[in-house]
Amino acid sequence: MAKGENIFKRKDGRWEARYIKGYEVSGKIKYGFCYGRTYREAKEKVTKCKAALANGAPLVTSNSRHRFSFYCDEWLRLRKPRIKEATYIKYNTILERHIKPKLGVCFPLGFTTALIDEFTRELLFEGELAPKTVHDILVVLHGILKYMVGVFPGTFPAVEVNYPKVGKKEMRVLSREEQKRFMEYLMKDMDECKFGVLLALFTGMRIGELCALRWENISLTERAIRIAATLQRLKDTEAVGSTKTRIVVGTPKSDTSVRLIPMTDFAFELCERMNPKSTAAYVLTGTKEYMEPRTLQYRMEKYTHDCELEGIHCHTLRHTFATRAIEVGFEIKSLSEILGHATTAITLDRYVHSSMELKRDNMNKLTAAGL
């Protein structure tokens, strides 16, 4: 640092240049700050700011004194009216647990691709987070960085976010023999909860949608089930203490998740057998009291343990339904709408699992081609 320049290297590796921005009424000096990755960059910025002050031009660094955590909060505040409560809680958790503790003290104009890469490395190897979890964190960070470009037009550095490779996890699907065994178990001494699990297997509905399903949403005349709500246990952002949660019954995951699912003949017969006392009753309980997803998961653990089935949970039923549908030649657009997906690509990529039996049948078709 040259004498009188007021430019020095910080502990985080960046260079900081300070200049007199003005004076308060009391006569106290108001300083301005510029930051750079090198001494020369910081000096060039501070020189421009001094020249702008001398010419009466506006300073481009007027917002740069806020730390990154400030802009994280602003980004989330602006997003809140446009996203679902569950999404807001997810974003807030990512900010508070991962982004703000590691990047919150940084100054926005000092962000670099190398800084983001180091942040990613720490999440993966020091935090030992799964690549999918790190990917979700970086998606939120990327959204904030895009917001920052608008806050600092022309001055925010070009930063690249390099996402970790997320391996495709093969989802567990019930084989036909396992499915038959599981159905026979559920139909023996069938109660409301077992009936609901069967209904999920026959329709592919999500666990939250099943927990929120009431008998008023099942039409025996139309032989169809209307999915119009989902039930979740979410973090209570209004309560004191981070461990507080509450049950929220709201609209489904997306607009396409609000749908009408036709029933198979078997599902229709089961619905007729249940004979609910009230249309306002929840399907899983037969009363006006709901069953939350966590309780249903515990029930599923018992059911699958009794059937000697391993690696099975509620979402397995959804994947099994989609796979059986493809095996019998289900039209993909119809299947996508029944599952509540926005596109058929999601259905094919995530929810369709070709069995060895189906692969063998398709390979045998090549006989006609002389192979």
Rank of each mutant, 00 (worst) to 15 (best):
M1T: 10
N6E: 07
N6A: 06
I7N: 02
R10P: 01
R10Y: 01
K11T: 14
D12N: 15
G13K: 10
E16A: 02
A17C: 02
K28H: 07
K30I: 15
Y31F: 11
C34R: 11
T38Y: 07
T47Q: 12
K50N: 14
K50S: 06
A51D: 14
A52L: 09
L53I: 15
A57Y: 14
P58K: 13
L59R: 03
V60W: 10
V60Q: 13
N63L: 15
S64M: 13
D73Q: 13
L78T: 01
L78R: 15
R79F: 00
R79S: 10
T93Y: 07
I94K: 06
L95H: 00
L95N: 02
L95E: 01
R97L: 13
P101R: 08
G104H: 05
C106F: 14
P108E: 11
L109S: 00
G110Q: 11
D117E: 14
E118F: 03
E122C: 06
L124Y: 10
L124D: 07
E126N: 11
P131W: 00
K132G: 05
I137T: 10
V139G: 02
L141C: 12
G143K: 02
I144R: 08
K146L: 11
G150S: 06
F156T: 03
P157A: 08
A158H: 03
A158E: 12
N162V: 11
Y163E: 08
P164M: 02
K165G: 05
K165E: 10
V166K: 02
K169L: 08
M171K: 14
R176H: 12
F182T: 11
E192L: 00
G196C: 12
A200N: 06
M205N: 04
R206C: 05
I207H: 01
G208D: 09
L220S: 04
E222W: 06
R223C: 08
A224L: 10
A229G: 01
T230K: 04
K235M: 05
G241L: 03
K244E: 13
K244Y: 03
T251E: 14
S254D: 03
V258Q: 09
I261T: 04
P262K: 14
P262R: 07
F268Q: 07
F268Y: 15
E269L: 11
L270R: 09
L270E: 12
E272P: 06
S278K: 09
A281V: 00
V283W: 02
T285H: 09
G286A: 05
M291L: 15
P293I: 11
T295C: 12
T295Y: 13
M300I: 15
E301S: 07
E301F: 06
C307I: 10
L309E: 04
G311S: 08
H313G: 08
H315A: 07
T316A: 10
T320K: 07
A322K: 10
A325C: 09
V328T: 14
I332T: 11
I338Y: 09
T343R: 07
D349Y: 00
Y351H: 07
S354D: 03
E357L: 14
L366D: 01
T367R: 15
L371S: 01
